[in-house]
Amino acid sequence: MKLEMKDTPGQLVSVLGPISKCGGNIIAVIHQRDPESESDTLDVQIVLDLPAGRLPALIGQIKALGVDILRIGEERLLHKRSLIMIGHIMHTDISDTVDQIDRTGFAEVSELSLMMPAINERSSARITIKTANRIDMESAVSILREVAGRKELLVVEPLEEWT
């Protein structure tokens, strides 16, 4: 996001508080002072990683400090994982399955590819989930596991890299 703030000591630091309060992780702060400028305000760019759904709260808190937000870049979900489901995916309400992930607020289904070989045969789907971080991903995957178990769908998960 690109912020416009007063060029007074402590102003930048005050903006960082709300970011950490919202669970954000600052990736970069770009702060260029133009010597020619006679303006008493300063433009600062902050790149950050924020849990899904927390952006409105952060915007509110920053505005409350009297700082203008000039531009907000695309909200990106950084973690992506594709799983494959096998079973009666349509008949067990696929939109409900997707909704169980989307309604968490911290995860969303970003892609779904469905293959149905014949009526009454088991179908297969690749479902891609996006979250802001690994912990949210584990939670989302365990929700999917639970929902799939209830619907008697087999979930094939990726083998995670050992860390």
Binding site: S82, I84, I86, M115, P117, R122, S124, R126, V156, P158
Partner: peptide, 22 residues
């Protein structure tokens, strides 16, 4: 219970399905 379609969906992403013991 693995279907040819599941294997195809894995292949589309440059992956494969294998039985893993861990």
């Amino acid at each position: 219970l693995i279907t040819p379609q599941a294997i195809q969906l894995a292949m589309d992403q440059e992956t494969a399905i294998r039985l893993i013991g861990e």
